[in-house]
Design a protein around this nucleic acid. Structure first.
Lengths: 150, 150
DNA sequence: TCCAAATAGGACTAAAATCATCCTTAATGT
DNA sequence: ACATTAAGGATGATTTTAGTCCTATTTGGA
């Protein structure tokens, strides 16, 4: 459907939440689940993917939880999404050379390449640190608006 | 999966094929199906969508078939895809204001807006007439390459 | 060393989407 | 009337999506 799945959306929420927390402080899955409105048992699977992808570190037991494995500045939206959804290919002809045997002569193929390049540009251009900053700016703006409304 | 479905791909092939034919000359579904490698009965459904969307005209009976309903210059890739897949929304939060109640404060939302804008730009920037021209250029180029290889 | 707290991982499932096929109906030109 | 051609409805297999649940494993502390 050319649409992000819940997996991708939830992964972004989780990583973004971790990025907003003090670095190194383990965050419980329950806390992520409740604050980000993601079913806990489902989120558990997503976190596993993020750990295997090297974006997140986990520790079990008391004082356990999840932390970012790398600074939020170095983690992009695209990376987070691909960690749980696999590589983004807007059309199957972009999966690999030869996946679609019409590649050679199909005039639409280059258009998909360009479309994907543009999309990647946007998603790779935003780090989790950027998004945390953006979120804080939005919060500030909302407070200002509320004050004006009084 | 953030990927075009077969519906969209097949629709593009069909409309592109019609665009490459003499305007007004009815083309049989069998001809489209075989030349574009799309299952005939499946293609039949897709053509119905394209007719209802106003991109293609159909006529039944002898001398029947499909033709473009409008000049190929005025039909874009995006329009063709949306005719069979519905409007493109890269994330459900883009479907409409309020679809995702996190809209207001979600710092990711504007990124998706931008991503979708860029994608639309590419897909809307190519008309079927453009693609036919591109296809002819590719053919010419391939002939040249073959000559050189001899 | 045992226990409580956490995540890891496997099995399972309901619902929806995807990718079709087949058959009957309706329109159209000769 | 008849042959031709698309329209439309019903059906179905397979895959993906979006979860849940249960058990195992790790970990730190009493």
């Amino acid at each position: 459907m050319l649409q992000l799945t819940r997996n991708g959306e939830y992964a972004v929420r989780a990583v973004l939440y971790l990025s907003s927390q003090p670095p190194g402080k383990p965050v419980l899955i329950t806390e992520i689940s409740e604050s980000q409105e993601v079913p806990k048992s489902y989120l558990s699977k997503i976190m596993q993917h993020l750990v295997r992808a090297g974006l997140v570190r986990s520790r079990r037991g008391i004082n356990g939880g999840f932390t970012l494995a790398r600074p939020a500045e170095t983690i992009t939206l695209k990376e987070t999404i691909e960690a749980v959804e696999g590589p983004i290919h807007l059309n199957i002809c972009l999966i690999r050379k030869g996946e679609c045997h019409r590649d050679d002569f199909c005039p639409v193929h280059p258009v998909w390449q360009e479309a994907q390049r543009r999309l990647s540009e946007v998603l790779d251009g935003k780090s989790m640190a950027d998004l945390v900053r953006d979120g804080e700016a939005i919060k500030k703006q909302m407070k200002k608006t509320r004050r004006k409304q009084k």
